[in-house]
Amino acid sequence: MTANDPTQPVPGTYLFDGNMAKKGYGLNKMCFSFNEQSARDEFNKDPDAYCAKFGLTEAQIKAIHERDIIGLLQQGGSIYYVAKFAGLLKLNMQDIGAIQTGMSLEEFKAMLVKRGSGEE
């Protein structure tokens, strides 16, 4: 765990509250649109144009380009909508768990197994 954002009450957690909901409104609206196949196709064809349509900030566009999940959360992304962006990239929840924690997928899964069995 690297980031300890002092504005966050729980380390490693980005509470999706009013501040975040406001900051991430356009980003989340774009990701919400990914419920539709036509929107996913349109994004895939020209990501930058699609981001512009929803008024994403530069920091948000950068995080989209870099598939930077933590960056998206810091820029106001809600995990439920960010998950739809991950889905578009064919990444599931465990893939993005690994990305966010800086682990390999196998390491992340092994950590979950340990925790699930009560070893950790």
Binding site: M1, T2, A3, V10, P11, G12, T13, Y14, I69, I70, L73, I79, V82, A83, M93, I96, G97, Q100, T101, G102, F108, M111, L112, R115, G116
Partner: peptide, 10 residues
């Protein structure tokens, strides 16, 4: 927990 560096909390 799905999001953040704390993803995988259980």
């Amino acid at each position: 927990q799905l999001d953040g560096e704390g993803a995988g909390t259980l």
